[in-house]
């Protein structure tokens, strides 16, 4: 067991990932507004944009799913922070007992069993943390898939906008808003997934 495997268990790395996830959460909360806006405009344009109304209500659904997925990411980050902090504490305790191990043999024998226990505990926490990261990667993939469906929604919105008659310009604006937001989420998540891969 590698008890000084910093890359996998450091709080530092968790904090960095969390910053990206917070960014995605911020952007995705914007999707909700875009979806609402799209629905209102679709309502106003009435019969001229039935198709757009369908797309915008699907967009609402997408936004809700995205919300739930983001909550899932938040929970995973919470477990990671908790486990990384536990690891940090174990590591600190480990170093205090390692100092005792520098003493002579008669002293060392009293610290050995404790050191072994602390190391065993560190192994358990390390395993927990690598599972946390694994779950986080799975969840990221899920969100990326969701974003793919968001992308096709924004494409449909663009097409429907063409048939919007005198509302066409407004609908086009909304459609590109949707596209922009989904793309931003997509690229941030892709970057994050790349960072987590190594």
């Amino acid at each position: 067991m590698n008890i000084v495997n910093d890359t996998i268990s450091s709080l530092h790395r968790v904090v960095k990932a969390n910053e990206d996830i917070k960014k995605v959460i911020r952007i995705s909360s914007g999707v909700n507004l875009v979806a609402l806006n799209a629905m209102l405009i679709a309502k106003r344009s009435g019969e001229r944009s039935r198709g757009f109304a369908v797309v915008s209500s699907e967009l609402r659904l997408f936004s809700r799913n995205l919300d739930a997925a983001m909550n899932g990411l938040g929970e995973l980050i919470f477990s990671l922070v908790r486990d990384a902090a536990a690891m940090q504490r174990q590591r600190q305790q480990h170093s205090h007992f390692m100092t005792v191990m520098k003493a002579n043999k008669s002293v060392r024998k009293w610290a050995e069993p404790t050191l072994a226990r602390v190391e065993a505990r560190m192994g358990v926490v390390e395993e927990e943390i690598s599972q946390d990261w694994h779950r986080l990667r799975l969840q990221l993939n899920r969100v990326l898939q969701l974003c793919e469906s968001g992308r096709s929604l924004s494409r449909s919105a663009k097409i429907e906008a063409v048939y919007g008659g005198d509302m066409s310009t407004t609908l086009k604006q909304v459609a590109s808003q949707i596209e922009g937001t989904v793309d931003e989420i997509f690229s941030t998540l892709k970057l994050l997934r790349m960072q987590l891969a190594d």
């Binding site: 205090h96 100092t99 005792v100 003493a103 002293v107 009293w110 610290a111």
Partner: peptide, 19 residues
């Protein structure tokens, strides 16, 4: 304190069974 634990533990264990 935590920072002097190893010194205290070693000093005691050198003389008596810390259990």
């Amino acid at each position: 304190g935590m920072e002097i634990f190893s010194a205290v533990f070693s000093a005691i264990s050198a003389e008596i069974d810390p259990y």
